[in-house]
């Protein structure tokens, strides 16, 4: 507990804590809609696609500016989304295969460029490989300010457009029939996913960032049958994991913040899977057992009744 206080009072750790919390919160919220639209893997694709964007931004500018990296990653992410959309629209390939193709080719390109950078004489390329696995400890005040703005925008948009996003996720055909601009809402949701992925890359890296979108949403689904509650819980789970990750890594020197956050989310998921009311494994086992006992009781009753009947006759 003492370590928790020391983390809260250390100004450097405060930024990291706030950053990881905000990141968990906004990816948790937007991840719910991605999950319900069966686009969980979209986050993964976008994250992997971001790598060549980051490399090209570095090669063009020659500096390690986070802002430029975000622009590069964002553009690459958008290109990947369009690529997937284009493939699914103009070929018979389904979206999972299209995502696989786009994800791996972008990531492959990213690794090629990264190796290229490391073997040529860019002065300050060290640390670029941090984008592969992330380094939350390198976050500074300006990064966290960007995260704060992004989180506020995403949470505000999801609150304002809750009804629209809900309808889009449940029944897009009906939403279109009502006259809602489905393509626009769809693009907006995708844009939010891209942005939350891009701000998450610095903390957890391109490989793990998808976990921030998927895991809290899936965990939250186990606890509720209401979308509003699910979105809240998912945001909460994400933020909590961010805090746990920062805390554990601040107490132990060799623990990386981002990956520990992801592991904390996995733990939360495990608990939800086990203990969730009605949907959880334990609840399912219990209801099954109860039903079995009731059935056995009924059969025993019937057996005694018919047995008596036989004696009477």
């Amino acid at each position: 507990m003492e370590s928790f206080w020391s983390m809260l009072t250390d100004p450097n750790a405060q930024w990291i804590l706030l950053g990881c919390m905000l990141l968990g919160l906004c990816s948790g919220v937007i991840g719910c809609f991605a999950y319900l639209r069966k686009q969980s893997l979209m986050g993964d694709t976008l994250a992997h696609a971001a790598l060549p964007g980051i490399c090209i931004a570095f090669m063009l500018s020659g500096t390690k500016s986070i802002g430029l990296f975000l622009v590069g990653a964002g553009i690459a992410g958008l290109l990947a989304t369009f690529g997937i959309g284009w493939i699914t629209r103009y070929s018979r390939i389904k979206s999972d295969a299209a995502m696989g193709i786009v994800l791996s080719s972008f990531f492959g390109l990213g690794i090629v460029l990264l190796t290229q950078i490391q073997h040529s004489n860019y002065g300050n390329q060290s640390g670029l490989d941090k984008f592969l696995f992330g380094q939350a400890a390198s976050m500074i005040g300006s990064d966290v300010t960007i995260m704060l703005i992004v989180s506020l925008v995403i949470v505000a948009a999801c609150t304002l457009l809750f009804k629209e996003f809900k309808l889009l996720s449940f029944d897009p055909g009906f939403a279109k029939g009502l006259g809602f601009p489905i393509a626009l809402l769809d693009q907006l949701l995708m844009f939010f996913i891209v942005v939350s992925v891009v701000i998450g890359i610095q903390a957890v890296g391109v490989v793990l960032v998808a976990a921030l979108l998927i895991t809290p949403a899936v965990s939250a689904r186990y606890w509720t049958d209401r979308l509003g509650v699910m979105v809240l819980l998912s945001g909460l789970f994400g933020a909590l994991s961010g805090v746990v990750g920062t805390w554990l890594s601040s107490t132990t020197v060799s623990l990386p913040t981002g990956p520990v956050s992801v592991l904390a989310q996995t733990l939360l998921f495990g608990l939800s899977l086990l203990l969730g009311p009605r949907r959880g494994l334990l609840a399912k086992r219990l209801t099954h057992r109860k039903a079995k006992l009731v059935l056995q009781e009924e059969q025993r009753m019937r057996a005694t009744v018919s047995g008596k009947g036989g004696v009477d006759a």
Partner: peptide
């Protein structure tokens, strides 16, 4: 055409019929 495992109840789905009349942002 929809996934019936969506986290919502019957009343909520029926209220979706009013979304067009409600317009943007307004909640039922």
């Amino acid at each position: 055409s929809v996934d019936w495992d969506f986290p919502t109840n019957a009343l909520d789905v029926v209220m979706m019929g009013r979304y067009g009349h409600l317009g943007w942002f307004r909640r039922p």
